[in-house]
Design a protein around this nucleic acid. Structure first.
Lengths: 227, 227
DNA sequence: CGTATTCTTGACTTATATCAATGTCGGTGG
DNA sequence: CCACCGACATTGATATAAGTCAAGAATACG
């Protein structure tokens, strides 16, 4: 079954038959509807996953109910890698933003699956490293740049990762509410709404419910860079 | 030479003679005076390191000259792991806070050194993972908690990692200026100074130049947790 | 002993959160 | 098919935390 995922996922490309067999042990497919949770912050980290199709958001909540979006998981990426951190609970919650398809393994298989091929390990390590890099960028921006710049920077990064160009505009191909943007950029919903409304007025952004469409990329890049 | 480092550093514990030999290839000792730089942001990532003794701070600067301390490197930790991110320049600058001793390898040896023992790879991965976790915590705090809480949280984490208890007080065993604390917690020097002065008045902190000494740990923990 | 670094403190300003209300879209069920 | 309801979004008024500007004091170091 699911022979195709090994062709679909770059992460598993070029493995020998023996290693593929090792990877397959304990592997289970998972399907999620929009808004459905995959795992919850603080829950025992029973499994780790690779996203085959769709989009997830990983969030963390503070005691007082505030939320931030820690990362957005794109197809082909690993998530739930708590085993790598040597911890037994998930540091955040994961939830599908759109219909999603993934594959999961018991945490106990982490070293076996990673060990099946060194390239897999380095790939996972690079993925974690990139996340670290991104987290540091956001951290630096959080304390040194103002709200508008942070919002532009976050949207620009997502647009670069996954944006789809249509008639000169770039659209982020999955729904992002104003609240999501706020949680991504460390602002309140209100501030985000005000700033994005201003950009609409200047023709930089196109107004759309639960969607972000960049109309004037150069202007957007200028804002992200600090004008 | 330097046979002892393999006993001193937990990272290299329990390796076979053959693997130790592999690790030793291209290895070079480095000594740094306080304030001396190890590598600079944007420079070609020629080497990666393990800190044997001392303390480093890794910083990033924005175009407009603002700075944040991305992490503090403690003895036994890996730094300069740009190769793991598949990038050829350092994302930040590293500088010794106190006299420091380390060992470096050419970046080209990354996979070889990591491959010398799987345990080493997983150790490095855990180290990166922990940094990611820490970055997310700081990111969450940056946008949801107020200045005093962030300062307390940062100092508390460092104190837990490395603090030394003396006569009921806990001292962070390396110099930390108010500016350092500001760069660590995402504040200005002034805000940090005001808040720490207030804590001194309440007997929670002991005043000391370039040093942080926690006098009332429970009170400090309460502040970090959000009172 | 003087000079540089580090730290403190005050007055003022501003960005952004908070509070509060209203508006708009889009799906669901009658 | 239309009306309603809930989710999502806008907008204004106000409050406030923390940044900026500015000056000066304390400590370390050569």
């Amino acid at each position: 079954m699911s022979e195709h995922i090994f062709r679909d996922l770059p992460l598993f490309a070029g493995l020998s038959a023996a290693h593929l067999d090792a990877v397959r042990v304990g592997m289970m497919p998972v399907v999620l509807a929009p808004g459905e949770g995959l795992f919850a912050q603080g829950a025992p980290a029973k499994r780790f996953f690779v996203l085959a199709e769709g989009r997830l958001k990983v969030t963390q909540v503070t005691e007082d109910g505030r939320q931030i979006i820690v990362r957005i998981v794109h197809p082909g990426e690993i998530c739930g890698f708590a085993p790598a951190l040597n911890r037994d609970t998930y540091p955040g919650s994961a939830e599908a933003m759109v219909p999603s398809r993934l594959y999961g393994w018991p945490s106990s298989r982490w070293e076996a699956v990673m060990g099946a091929a060194p390239s897999l390990t380095f790939s996972a390590m690079r993925a974690i490293g990139r996340k670290l890099d991104e987290a540091h960028t956001r951290l630096r921006e959080a304390s040194t740049t103002e709200a508008g710049q942070r919002i532009a920077s976050v949207l620009l990064r997502i647009a670069r990762e996954t944006g789809e160009e249509t008639a000169g505009t770039i659209q982020i191909p999955f729904p992002l509410t104003r609240q999501d943007v706020a949680d991504l950029s460390g602002n309140t919903l209100h501030t985000v709404s005000r700033i994005m409304a201003a950009w609409e007025g200047r023709g930089i952004l196109v107004r759309a419910r639960r969607r972000v469409i960049i109309a004037d990329l150069p202007a957007f890049e200028a804002i992200a860079a600090g004008t």
